[in-house]
């Protein structure tokens, strides 16, 4: 396991906390373009590598920078310092069904959403049946998605995303969609993913799920990397720190 899928190289991400933000032109001109802000470093010099073929969990309390890191991995945010390099095609699953047009049918939305996620029309056509089958909404595929139940909506969104078939999949806490049956299908899909030697990076608060799925983990606290490595010791260390916190 020496191959690296993702290299997070001394990444730092800064946000500006505005006290007086120049959000209107007037205030920008009146104050001479200067806005009053202080820097908040959401990620401080985070540095780790994700081995190819691993399922990698990002853990930490609220506000520890997990989601920021995930968004950096998904190329939505760009780090101020450091860089992230990938070895393979990456797809991010931060929200399912984003970009669905409510008035369009499920079929039309599959093609639309697929291309937003970076699939070509050919790929979508090829995987169309698989997507529909996985989502379990065959019966309603030509209905506008606004008439879908919320469960159907997420299931369809998830099915599209999971079929992008990337080398590296970045997942936010979206695993908890659909009913028990659908969740079972999802976990099976992740197992298949792993079998194919693909890399999954996920964020979750559900330690049981992380324990079950991940073989590697990184623990973030207040934007800093506390520990990284095999899943079990890292999770244990994180849980211990929580218990200590409660004890105090």
């Amino acid at each position: 396991m020496s191959e690296i899928a993702v290299r997070v190289d001394h990444v730092s991400k800064k946000f500006r906390l505005y006290h007086e933000r120049n959000q209107s032109l007037k205030s920008a001109i009146m104050r001479g373009r200067r806005s009053v802000h202080e820097d908040f470093w959401a990620l401080k010099d985070v540095n780790f590598e994700v081995p190819t073929g691993s399922t990698f969990g990002l853990i930490g309390s609220n506000g520890s920078g997990k989601s920021t890191l995930l968004k950096c991995l998904a190329k939505i945010y760009y780090p101020e310092k450091g860089s992230i390099s990938y070895n393979g095609k990456i797809a991010a699953l931060l929200e399912v069904g984003s970009g669905f047009h409510p008035e369009l049918s499920g079929r039309e939305n599959i093609f639309l959403n697929g291309s937003i996620l970076g699939m070509t029309k050919k790929e979508v056509t090829r995987k169309f049946d698989e997507i529909v089958d996985f989502s379990g909404v065959e019966q309603f595929i030509d209905q506008p998605v606004k008439n879908y139940s919320s469960g159907m909506y997420v299931r369809l969104g998830f099915s599209i995303a999971i079929n992008v078939n990337p080398d590296i999949l970045v997942v936010d806490e979206v695993l908890a969609v659909g009913d028990a049956e659908f969740q079972e299908k999802c976990s099976q899909k992740f197992v298949d993913f792993k079998k194919d030697g693909k890399t999954v990076i996920l964020v979750s608060h559900a330690m049981a799920a992380v324990r079950e799925m991940c073989d590697h983990a990184a623990w973030l606290s207040h934007g800093e990397l506390v520990a990284v490595g095999e899943a079990e010791p890292t999770i244990q260390a994180y849980l211990n720190s929580l218990n200590q916190g409660e004890g105090l």
Partner: peptide, 19 residues
């Protein structure tokens, strides 16, 4: 460009739906 085409189609198809 395929995405561009699809987004354009989304606008065109969605625009006068249900009229």
């Amino acid at each position: 460009r395929e995405l561009l085409a699809n987004l354009t189609l989304r606008e065109i198809r969605g625009q006068y739906k249900r009229t």
